[in-house]
Design a protein around this nucleic acid. Sequence first.
DNA 1: TTGCAAAACGGAACAATGTTCCATATCAAT
DNA 2: ATTGATATGGAACATTGTTCCGTTTTGCAA
Lengths: 190, 190
Amino acid sequence: MRADAQRNLDAVLLAAKEVFATSGVDAPVREIADKAGVGLGTLYRHFPRRADLIAAVFRREIDACAEIAPLLAERHAPFDALASWMQRYAAFVGTKRGLAQALHSGDPAFDSLPSYFDQKLRPALRALRDAAVSAGEARADVDADELLGAVASLCMSAHNAGSGRAERMVALLVDGLRHGASPSQDIGDT
Amino acid sequence: MRADAQRNLDAVLLAAKEVFATSGVDAPVREIADKAGVGLGTLYRHFPRRADLIAAVFRREIDACAEIAPLLAERHAPFDALASWMQRYAAFVGTKRGLAQALHSGDPAFDSLPSYFDQKLRPALRALRDAAVSAGEARADVDADELLGAVASLCMSAHNAGSGRAERMVALLVDGLRHGASPSQDIGDT
DNA sequence: TTGCAAAACGGAACAATGTTCCATATCAAT
DNA sequence: ATTGATATGGAACATTGTTCCGTTTTGCAA
């Protein structure tokens, strides 16, 4: 790929991410092209459909979310790493007003997103969870899928009134995770 | 209200209901106006915003759904009335692809819909449920809110693959309702 | 029945936005 | 430096929500 093409592609993805966060996924394509400093033709060369651009931005953010998990695991105690990651995931889902809408829209461009979610996010979270469980810092009777689903529901569900409700609910969830974690576990590993 | 105005309003609502069922709530306004046999100006006179028309159609169908409950109660045994109504409600929610989308869109025109749902539907279902419970034909440990929520989730949730899955899941739910209903029940069989 | 003013109507015109197209500009291999 | 392939920008087109206004219809009163 030619250098200028790569540069423009990055600029478009960055601009799209910011515009989607600011104005939602319904923002006009022109606004994104302008913010990226490219023409409409350039944008459409890389993303033939508006939905392709949306999906690409989501994928990129999912990647970023998944890739940060190992870093958190290195830098923090197991449970803290898990908790940090959960909040980061919640922020991602929460920022993406219109993610649920996109997923339910029936547009074929989004068909691959759910499996992409699973494939990228589940291993990332599972590693963090397993580490926290092994360290005796989290209960063992909740698995990665359940956590991903619970957080997604909390953050995407109907009119999450006002400010930080989703964050607070996720924090509650995380507290619950820690609660059953004492060394003398019934179900947990030894 | 002038007779022709009333006639046109009815025609628009009827056409909109059919078009929404066929093409989803994103169908062009022109298509609805054409189907109703009225001009765009007429349609916009009655519904200044596209969203107003959508909300009106939903309200009207909610009303129809609620109003049929007493009729079912008259004509059928208590449990059959309840089961019939549940399927009717499921059909309503299921047909309304884009109901969830509308509810989550943030458009002020839809702000009043959730409370309208509760206000109309909950009493209707509660009456049916109470009658079935009193007759010993349904278990008592599930209330109207839970049922409405469960059915809505089943019917609106992500890509309800293909044909009658939602209906089958609702039927399952209804079977479950009947299951714990015998006079000498505690919490369930051991 | 007829006349008339108010109400309602239809659809052309406007605005916003997704998408296509192609003349022009840029890149990189020779 | 030349040159062919690639990428670019933005004008032009298509679709659709919304507004506007000249025309038609309605209900009432004389």
